[in-house]
Amino acid sequence: MPALILENVEVIYDKVFLAIKGVSLEVGEGEMVALLGSNGAGKSTTLKSVSGLLGPERGLVTRGEIRFGDRSILSLGAPERVAGGLVHVLEGRRIFGHLTPDENLVAAYRGRSIARFNELRDQVYAYFPRLKERIKSKAGYLSGGEQQMLAIGRALMTEPKLIMLDEPSLGLSPLLVQEIFGIIQEINAREGLSVLLVEQNAAATLDIVSRAYLIEQGQVVMSGAADVLKSNPDVQDFYLGGAEHTDYRNVKHYRRRKRWLA
Results as ranks from 00 to 15, higher is better:
59 G>Y: 03
61 V>W: 13
62 T>M: 11
64 G>Y: 04
68 F>A: 09
70 D>P: 06
70 D>Q: 13
70 D>A: 11
71 R>V: 05
71 R>Q: 14
71 R>S: 15
75 S>F: 03
76 L>K: 08
77 G>R: 08
78 A>N: 03
78 A>H: 04
78 A>V: 08
79 P>T: 14
79 P>H: 15
79 P>R: 06
80 E>V: 10
85 G>R: 02
85 G>I: 11
88 H>V: 01
90 L>F: 07
91 E>A: 10
93 R>L: 02
93 R>I: 06
93 R>E: 07
94 R>K: 15
95 I>T: 08
96 F>D: 06
97 G>D: 10
99 L>H: 03
99 L>V: 00
102 D>Q: 13
102 D>L: 15
102 D>A: 14
103 E>H: 02
103 E>G: 04
104 N>T: 05
105 L>P: 08
105 L>S: 07
108 A>M: 07
109 Y>S: 12
111 G>D: 11
111 G>R: 15
114 I>P: 02
115 A>G: 05
120 L>F: 08
122 D>C: 07
122 D>A: 14
122 D>T: 03
123 Q>F: 02
124 V>P: 02
125 Y>V: 11
127 Y>S: 03
129 P>L: 15
134 R>E: 02
135 I>H: 12
137 S>P: 01
142 L>V: 10
142 L>A: 09
144 G>N: 07
144 G>L: 04
145 G>Q: 08
146 E>V: 01
147 Q>L: 05
152 I>M: 04
